Amino acid sequence: MERIKLKSVFLREEMDTLHIRHLYHQIDWSDRLVGILGARGTGKTTLLLQRMKLAFPSDDTALYISLDDIYFASNTLMEVAETFRSRGGKVLFIDEVHKYSGWAREIKNIYDTYNDISIVFTGSSVIDIYQQEADLSRRAIFYELAGLSFREYLRFADVYSGEVISLSDILSQHTQIAFKLSKHFKPIPYFEAYLDHGYYPFFKENIRTYFLRIEQVIRLIIETELRFVDGFDINNTNKVMQLLAILAENVPFKPNISKLSSKIGISRQTVTQYLHYLEKARLINMLNPAGASISILQKPEKVYLENPNLHRAISLSEANQGSRRESFLLNQLRNAKHEVSLPSAGDFLVDRKVTIEVGGKGKSRKQIAGVENAFIAADNLEIGIDEKIPLWLFGFLY
């Protein structure tokens, strides 16, 4: 216990609190049980330690523990909680819960037994909370930490600190907003940098090794985190890697499940399941028409890489600019909690009422001619007019 307490103090003291994610201010930290889910590499551990440092800067009432620590090979989470509480502890910050067998049951028992203990925990986005044997869904408040928005990237890069802009304001006031923002920074070169290497917070550490880090993240997700998904066969890890590589070369991709099945050497049903797992792991985004039933066996109409940085990290050929544009817009809209589906005309139908076509600066309205409430999200455009909106501006949605 003393060793993990010393480790907790060390990590708290070493944590930088200069750059705080937007989600930090959305979380109601007064709730007794808070769950923060998200893909590997998005900064969940940093968020926990920043909260601990800012709210409990010098006392012993808070403790950070990671459940992949070797300490838990011979000690239980409940034992740690009981000892911590007996010494005056109040808040447990628990990292990597999915690495610990029976984590949901023990967290539930701590929560139900000790009403003077609060818990904040993190876990992989592949976790299906509703499939756990202990029902945490009625007890915990859950949040998801995505990668950096373009707005957050600018702040982390010490370029510009701006507020979130709603989709309705972007659609109705984009010319005035873009004109105002462009006085503070040149959006086009910074946006290109973001598409290349700005989604994961670790870009701050070393841009030269950024894509090696992404490759490591992808491999860890597929080789270690997907094994926590019910029904995933760990023997098919290389098949999943192969599937992801095929998608990366072809996105946006209209999958032919039979051809994918034949090429990879697994059944059609398994291919569809693995697409679902890759989406849960936040490595791809799948798109279907509005109102279509969504299930683990539902074949998607189109598949995208989850964020534009993945194109360069995974694809063997140079990333297609059009693919990166669409990947970016779908990513930012969904991370801002907008519903996005496949329209009959255009690229994306947002909240079942707004159609958006994505393209370059010279993109015409041909694909969305006659469509009501339709807009063009144009790349390489600093300031737009009427229904043509700069693509980069959608990076301020969260």
Rank of each mutant, 00 (worst) to 15 (best):
K239F: 07
M78Y: 14
S168C: 09
L167M: 11
I36G: 01
Y153D: 00
R227K: 13
S267H: 13
A290V: 12
D68K: 06
K180R: 15
I94M: 02
D158V: 05
R32L: 06
G41L: 07
Q216D: 12
L305A: 01
L136K: 07
T76D: 08
P252S: 11
L145C: 03
G123D: 03
I296H: 09
P187I: 04
Y190K: 09
H276F: 15
L48T: 03
G395A: 06
Q242Y: 11
K263F: 12
M241S: 12
Q367W: 10
D230T: 13
E96S: 06
S86E: 14
K108W: 10
G162C: 10
I141G: 02
V303I: 15
E387F: 14
D233R: 07
F396M: 09
N109D: 15
W392D: 00
K180I: 12
G88M: 08
L54Q: 05
K204F: 00
R105C: 02
R268C: 07
L136T: 13
N380L: 14
W392V: 02
L342N: 12
G162I: 10
F56K: 04
T61W: 02
A55Q: 09
I36Y: 00
A336F: 05
T76L: 12
I27L: 02
D95Y: 02
E318N: 13
S323R: 03
S182D: 12
E133M: 09
I296C: 08
P57Y: 04
N75P: 11
S267W: 12
Q269R: 14
K254H: 13
Y194R: 04
D68V: 04
K183W: 08
V229P: 02
L77F: 10
K388S: 01
E387D: 14
K90P: 05
I117H: 05
A281N: 05
V229T: 14
L310Q: 01
R324N: 08
L316P: 05
I264A: 11
V340E: 03
P255F: 06
E306G: 03
L278M: 15
G198N: 03
I257E: 08
S149V: 06
N238G: 09
S166G: 09
G231L: 11
Y199R: 05
K239A: 09
S86D: 14
N236E: 15
R139M: 10
F84W: 06
D233A: 08
E339K: 15
S101Q: 14
L136R: 08
E301P: 07
Q367N: 14
S293D: 13
M241W: 04
K180F: 14
Q216V: 05
N238E: 15
V91E: 06
I117S: 03
